[in-house]
Nucleic acid binder design. Structure first.
Lengths: 221, 221
DNA sequence: CTTCTATGATCGAGTTCCGCTCGGTGAGCA
DNA sequence: TGCTCACCGAGCGGAACTCGATCATAGAAG
C-alpha cells in the first residue's frame, strides 16, 4: 500500500458528477474552463449568490453548455470541490515525495502545508470548503468525506511510521482532520493570506493531540 | 462584570436583521412564529431546499408578511441562527447558575453540555449551524462571531476562576471554540442524537488543550 | 366605556429573475 | 460527405420578492 496509491490514486470521477463524459478534446478544456470560471465567481460573489449564468458567461460558454455537463447548479459546486480535493491530495503526495518525511509528524505537517497552500492559491477553495458541511448524507461519492482522508492517512502512518493502526487511529485522525479544518478555516476567515497565529496553533494542537496517544515524535520509527 | 451580564445580556437584535421593528403585540408573535416555522422546515427539507413560501405557509402567514420582516431569504436563516445563538447563551447561563461550577473546567463543560442539548432539542439548530461558515465578513452584528463568545467566556474564566486574562486567553478560547464546534458538529453529522464518542473526545481535547496552558484543573481557584 | 381614526399589520396577485430544457446549428472525425 | 459530438440561446416553470388594497389594533377623544 504505497503512498501514491493512497493519495494520488484514481481521480474522483464518480460518473454521477458529469452528465456526459467528453470524448473530443475541446470539451475537456470546456469542462475545466467551467470549473475555473465557477471558482473565480464563487470567490467574487459567494457561495449562494452564484448563478449558472455567471459561470457560463465567465467561461465564455452558453448556459446550455453548463447543463450539458452538470445536472444542476449544486453539481457544479460539488465538481469544483472534488477537483480541489483531488488537487489537495496530489499536493500532499508531492510534498511527501520532495521532503521525504522521517517521522509521522513530518507527514502530518505536509498535509497542513498543502492545505494552507491551496487556501492561498487555489481560487474558490475557501468558499467551496466552507460549504462542505451542508452536503446531504445521501451524497454519492464517499471519497470526499473527511473520514475517507482520515482512513487513507491512517494507512500511511501505520505502514510507513509504525503507528499502531486500526479503528482507534482512524477515529483520532478524523478528530484531527476536523480540528485542523476548522482552525485553518478560521485562520483564513478574515486574512486572505492566512493568520499565521492560527496556523501555528493548529500545528501545535494536532501534534500535541496525536503525541498524547502515540508518544513523542522522536520515539517513532 | 457578572455572569448574567456577559451571557444573558442584551438580545442580539441588531436592527439590520429585521426590516421593521414590531410595535404591536401580535407582530412579535408573528416574528417568532416565522422563525419557528423556518426551523421546522429547515429540518425537514434542508438548508437550500427551503423556500420563503414554505416558511410562510407553515407559519400560517402570507408571503408578504415574511418580506415585511426580512429583506430576503437568507436573512430569515440568519435570524434563525441569531435566535439559536441567543438561546445557547441563555442555556449556558442557566447551566452555570444551577450547577455552580467550582473550577474553570466546570464552566467550560457547561458550555459543551448546553451546546449538545441545543443540538438535540432545538429545531433547526443543526442545519443553521452548518451554514454558519458561509457568512460573509461584511455581515453586521459581531456578537455572533465565535470570537465574541470567546471574549465573553474569557471574562468569566478570568473573573471567577482567576485564569490570567488578556489576549492570549481570548485567542486560546477562540481556538477552543472552533475545535469544539467542529468536533461536535461531526458528532451530530450522521447521528441525530450525537455520537457520544466524538462528544467525549471533544471534552477531552478541550480540557487537555486549555490545561496545557493554565495547569491542571484542581490547581486553579 | 364607547366610538373614531391613524397607523401598524396582513394579504396575495403580479413582476422579475433564475434554474433548467430542448430543438436547431456549427465543428470535428471517419 | 455524412455523422456524431459540442454548442447555442430563446423559452418555460417556479421561486424570490414588491406593492397597493384591506383588515386589526392602540390610544385619543368624548
Amino acid at each position: 500500500m504505497s503512498l501514491s496509491d493512497l493519495f494520488g490514486g484514481d481521480p474522483v470521477v464518480s460518473g454521477q458528477q458529469v452528465r456526459i463524459e467528453p470524448t473530443q478534446q475541446r470539451s475537456t478544456a470546456r469542462l475545466s474552463g467551467l470549473l475555473d470560471a465557477a471558482a473565480v465567481v464563487v470567490d467574487e460573489v459567494g457561495f449562494d449568490r452564484i448563478t449558472t449564468a455567471m459561470v457560463a458567461e465567465r467561461a465564455g460558454a452558453s448556459i446550455g453548455t453548463v447543463y450539458r455537463y452538470y445536472p444542476d447548479r449544486v453539481a457544479v459546486l460539488q465538481a469544483l470541490r472534488e477537483r480541489a480535493v483531488l488537487r489537495f491530495r496530489q499536493r500532499v503526495v508531492d510534498q511527501l515525495r520532495s521532503s521525504g518525511p522521517e517521522t509521522w509528524w513530518d507527514a502530518v505537517d505536509c498535509a497542513v502545508t498543502a492545505f494552507v497552500d491551496l487556501y492561498r492559491t487555489e481560487p474558490g477553495f475557501r468558499i467551496v470548503h466552507f460549504a462542505d458541511r451542508e452536503r446531504t448524507p445521501i451524497s454519492g461519492s464517499e471519497e470526499l468525506e473527511s473520514g475517507y482522508f482520515a482512513r487513507q492517512l491512517a494507512g500511511v502512518l501505520a505502514e510507513e511510521f509504525g503507528l499502531h493502526g486500526g479503528p482507534d487511529l482512524i477515529f483520532r485522525l478524523e478528530v484531527t482532520v476536523e480540528m485542523a479544518d476548522s482552525i485553518l478555516s478560521r485562520a483564513f476567515h478574515s486574512d486572505p493570506n492566512g493568520d499565521d497565529r492560527f496556523i501555528a496553533e493548529c500545528r501545535r494542537v494536532m501534534r500535541d493531540y496525536l503525541a498524547g496517544y502515540y508518544g513523542p515524535i522522536a520515539a517513532t520509527v
